[in-house]
């Protein structure tokens, strides 16, 4: 099967999306449109090429920043910009009827690709993901995202790694 991935639009049937996470289903159905309109998040949906109304999976991106409890002069001098400009992959989910076909991984790559392209115009230093629970964190760890010791549901990837991924 071939998917198209596009920005959330009025064509897609948001209400029928059913992943295993009620929270992520409800966000897509009730909040995603508004979040996108208010420029708080960008939402991207995957549909089978021949079914543009069907949402097989989605993810959302948002601007974020990382600050430090303590930032000694030595550290702030070294950093070109503080707090660190961060691209957040806030949500990612696959409809249950499409799970286990590689779509989750494909959506993750798609998100990283968009972050990579965006970072060429407006630089960001870190890609960050919010995992909703331990199982979600395990999904991201598989791809090399590193959890913070004190924030295990926040995992990061340095933009240098993302750049290497898309360098060719």
């Amino acid at each position: 099967m071939i998917w198209t991935i596009r920005r959330l639009d009025g064509v897609a049937d948001r209400a029928s999306f059913q992943s295993t996470s009620n929270e992520l289903n409800s966000w897509l159905a009730k909040q995603a449109n508004q979040a996108q309109k208010k420029r708080l998040a960008s939402v991207f949906i995957a549909s089978p090429v021949d079914q543009p109304t069907c949402i097989a999976g989605y993810y959302s991106l948002a601007p974020w920043q990382i600050a430090f409890e303590q930032a000694p002069v030595k550290v702030t001098k070294r950093l070109p910009r503080y707090p660190l400009a961060t691209a957040l992959l806030a949500r990612l989910a696959v409809d249950q009827s499409f799970q286990g076909q590689g779509l989750g991984g494909v959506l993750l790559i798609d998100a990283l690709k968009r972050i990579h392209l965006a970072a060429q115009s407006v630089p960001v230093q870190v890609a960050l993901v919010h995992a909703k629970d331990d199982a979600a964190a395990a999904f991201y760890r598989r791809y090399g995202f590193e959890p913070f010791a004190d924030e295990p549901l926040h995992l990061f990837m340095a933009m240098g790694t993302v750049e290497q991924l898309f360098a060719d």
């Binding site: 601007p63 600050a67 990061f156």
Partner: peptide
């Protein structure tokens, strides 16, 4: 809600990762 504040240990890990980004797995 739009800022993650890191402890000293996590800050140092992140800065080390930015400086020496690993290859994609």
């Amino acid at each position: 809600a739009s800022t993650l504040v890191l402890s000293v240990a996590d800050r140092d890990r992140l800065l080390a990762a930015i400086d020496g980004a690993v290859a994609p797995n």
